[in-house]
Design a binder for these strands. Structure first.
Lengths: 222, 222
DNA sequence: ATATAAAATTAGATACGTCTAACAATTTTA
DNA sequence: TAAAATTGTTAGACGTATCTAATTTTATAT
């Protein structure tokens, strides 16, 4: 009898989902790095998941999610993001505290539990970090993201999402008082390292390109 | 690398806790039945848990929890019962719906999560089924329970707890409109099968001894 | 007190998910 | 395009938790 197989496959599905978001496929090596595993472990699981029709996989070829696999991944991500929203809005956690807890709760098997969350929250469209919550079938309408790095000098923008929700990153944003919904203006752009200087809450702040890349914005309509 | 060892040992600890509640010790056979496992599986785990000083165990002898083991069990039960309280009081689940969900959430590793629950609930002393919630060190003051079966004919009593929280049992109580806090009066007692007839909400209801045994009461002070 | 029944243990197998080491295929570079 | 580097697979091992089958110990009954 297995010992919580699903839990583990769910983590593979999530990683596959994120890694295939743009290029539609991912290599064994990339997946192994993302999951902090060795390549043979990944190869072996890919063979299993291919048998279960969760992925499309042929020897030496990049891996793709099937529609079934993508939906299943979407359902897990839905549970993760609903949980984050619940933790922030109902239980009053800070947005930097919720990722770790949601990583665990996303594996809970109880549709009723997540339906209740969804209802209590009024079926939110996004999680506390601005990411879209997949619908109850696991489908998600992926969006084209515009980074703070893409904003031209002198232009204004509103922060609407984040590319990652590591707590270190979120604590950094907290320390600069950067939140979802904050209005910013790009004052300077350094060519050689991509760093930028922005104005936010009437203060000047310098951000590395690594940070600016991971902040999604909506262009200001003037 | 292990695959969720703790999760499994936690379930053993819980079962051990419940089975040793009265007699202070339990046999391999009883534990195997409770957990729906075969005896060799249990023997093997008992050897492991004895090494870890969670239980006191010698070949062919009954199993006892060590203080360490009992505290760890208490902490898991605390998480379970806090969760049940949270599900009922915050998320508006019925008391018959929460056990299954709590079985899963009790394994979440996040003191902050359960501390927040505890705070939101005002540090409740009991769960929705009247069971005492262990303190944050895993200690529990066990009580002497008086069953509805122990009440003499003609006497009144108030329902304050349950010996089990199977959803089938709880749905049965729901159907009879029996709740925690309900006032009852014992009208008749059948000698041969231990069944009783009570008055509750001005209605007469007959209960088997199996049911009456599992309902804890407080004697009415007249 | 001995035979029988029940309980418990040991031995050895299986499933799962991981790993290392060895080898094979593919991609990059010179 | 050949050599080198990288990526990927296979083979085989390990740890965990389970199982069945066989054996041993303890408890029960006559």
């Amino acid at each position: 009898m297995p010992v919580l197989t699903s839990h583990i496959q769910e983590n593979y599905l999530k990683a596959l989902y994120h890694l295939t978001a743009d290029k539609k496929e991912v290599t064994v090596n990339e997946l192994a790095k993302k999951m902090d595993l060795k390549m043979p472990s990944v190869t072996s699981m890919m063979q299993k998941m291919a048998d279960e029709k969760l992925i499309k996989y042929e020897k030496y070829k990049p891996i793709k999610l099937t529609d079934k696999g993508r939906k299943m991944a979407g359902l897990i991500i839905r549970k993760h993001r609903l949980t984050e929203m619940f933790l922030v809005n109902v239980m009053n956690f800070g947005w930097e505290e919720v990722h770790e807890i949601a990583e665990q709760i996303e594996h809970i098997k109880s549709p009723a539990f997540f339906n209740k969350m969804d209802k209590m929250l009024g079926s939110p469209a996004r999680d506390p970090h601005g990411s879209v919550i997949p619908d109850s079938s696991g489908n998600i309408r992926e969006e084209v993201h515009i980074s703070l790095s893409d904003v031209a000098m002198g232009e204004g923008a509103k922060i609407i999402g984040l590319a990652q929700s590591e707590d270190s990153f979120l604590r950094f944003l907290n320390s600069k008082n950067i939140k979802l919904g904050s209005e910013v203006k790009v004052l300077e752009k350094e060519e050689f390292d991509g760093s930028i200087v922005i104005e936010i809450n009437k203060k000047k702040i310098s951000l590395s390109s690594k940070v600016a890349d991971d902040i999604y914005i909506k262009q200001e309509v003037k």
